[in-house]
């Protein structure tokens, strides 16, 4: 069976798991679907109480990816956890802002350290 590329790496900041997205663009739907499944699998396996997703390597996203992030958020919440997002460039932040999800469904911070402090 052909293996899928891994779309993120995991590190920790002050004991909070940080999931660093590793692909430059999340605009291709098949990639978004695979990435969503991988992230959800990680969340369901580890059930983090606090989780930061770091977008520093992400250049662009589409609305499909925002929907995927909503599913990811549902899984974090469903496991009793809280999700924050960090390190978005202007192109990535714009869709979250335009759709009015920034500050409502998603708390977005300039750095992971700020996100961790805000838990």
């Amino acid at each position: 069976m052909e293996s899928s590329p891994q779309f993120f790496t995991v590190s920790a900041v002050d004991g909070v798991p940080e999931l660093i997205l590793g692909t430059a663009d999340f605009v291709s739907r098949p990639i978004i679907v695979l990435a969503q499944d991988q992230i959800i699998e990680y969340i369901d396996n580890t059930k983090p109480e606090r989780l930061v997703i770091n977008f520093k390597n992400v250049g662009h996203i589409s609305s499909e990816f925002i929907t995927a992030m909503i599913h990811v958020r549902d899984h974090v919440k469903g496991n009793g956890g809280e999700l924050k997002l960090s390190h978005m460039n202007d192109s990535v932040y714009a869709p979250f802002k335009i759709t009015k999800l920034a500050g409502r469904l998603f708390m977005i911070y300039e750095s992971t350290a700020e996100a961790v402090d805000a838990f």
């Binding site: 609305s63 925002i66 714009a94 869709p95 335009i98 759709t99 009015k100 469904l105």
Partner: peptide, 21 residues
């Protein structure tokens, strides 16, 4: 309206909103 608080978590309409923006 995808920006209506009631619809924030729904998937539909977000793409069109971005196109208009």
């Amino acid at each position: 309206d995808p920006t209506d608080p009631e619809n924030l978590e729904r998937a539909g309409g977000r793409g069109l909103l971005l196109i208009n923006a």
